[in-house]
Amino acid sequence: MSKLYIAGIGPGSEDFVTPAARKAVASAKITIGSKRALDLFPEVNEVVQLNVKDVQEKLEMAVNLVLEGKSVCVLSTGDPGFSGVLKPIKRIIKEKELEKDINLEVIPGISSLQLCAARQEISWDEADLMTFHGRENSREIIDILDNGRPTIALPSRSTRDMAQFLMDNGVDPQRKVAICERLSYEDEKMVSSTLEGVANSDFTYMCVMMVY
């Protein structure tokens, strides 16, 4: 029976790609992912590249290809279950009423949030994990930040926008922050700052923010 794999590729470096993810790619007839993700898998068979503008289209294609009898692996940055492609794929399967027709296997990956916690030398079960994706203006974020635990967050658009939103909603501009940029790459960078400092700085989109 054909299978739909959703494989987490880790934060970006091939050092953090799991053997299970490589096995899924090798087993799949077609692998779908961004160029950055596909470049990690020289063993890939047939590829379909996606970008931010056609993610929904390509995820629907993945489901349809499995229905046609092809095994497909969709690559997800980090872990598929945290701001990854697991949620939208499950939504597509549910909307099409295909729960009984799709053989799904989810392969976890190492999230950039986990690596951020490791770099900052904290136990991430003692922190709150949060994403700004799809909740850029959510007030519940403020409640999470005020519970006395460190918060590790994935920004949506930029760390600058995230810091400004927090300050606009009453968070102290001098609140301590760590920015982990381009985690796992050779030019990985750790910056200790404040919300105000981050709001006045430029970082790449590949960042994790820890608010203390």
Rank of each mutant, 00 (worst) to 15 (best):
S2H: 07
L4T: 03
Y5F: 12
Y5R: 03
I6N: 01
I6P: 00
G10R: 00
P11N: 02
P11W: 00
G12H: 00
E14T: 08
E14D: 07
D15C: 13
D15I: 11
A21L: 04
R22A: 04
K23V: 06
V25T: 02
A26S: 04
I30V: 10
G33Y: 01
K35A: 11
F41D: 00
K53W: 05
V55F: 13
V55A: 10
L59W: 03
E60T: 15
A62W: 00
A62H: 02
N64Y: 11
L65V: 08
E68A: 14
V74L: 05
L75D: 01
G78H: 03
D79Q: 12
P80M: 09
F82I: 09
S83V: 09
S83G: 10
G84F: 05
V85G: 00
K87Q: 11
K96M: 14
K96T: 08
E97N: 12
L98T: 07
E99R: 00
E99D: 04
E99H: 08
K100L: 10
D101S: 11
I102Q: 02
G109P: 03
I110P: 03
I110R: 01
S111L: 03
S112K: 11
C116D: 01
S123H: 15
S123N: 15
W124N: 13
D125T: 12
D128F: 14
L129A: 14
M130E: 08
F132Y: 13
F132E: 12
G134F: 15
G134S: 13
G134L: 10
G134R: 13
R135H: 14
E140P: 06
I141C: 13
I141W: 05
I141M: 13
L145R: 04
D146M: 15
D146L: 15
N147R: 12
R149I: 14
R149V: 14
P150T: 12
T151G: 14
T151I: 11
L154G: 05
P155Y: 09
P155N: 11
R157E: 15
T159K: 06
M162L: 15
M162Q: 07
Q164K: 13
M167F: 10
M167V: 09
D168G: 09
V171C: 05
P173G: 06
P173H: 03
A178M: 01
A178I: 04
C180T: 02
E181Q: 07
R182Q: 04
R182F: 03
D187P: 04
K189M: 09
M190K: 09
M190F: 08
V191M: 05
V191Q: 01
T194W: 01
G197S: 06
A199F: 00
N200Y: 10
N200M: 11
M206R: 05
Y212C: 06
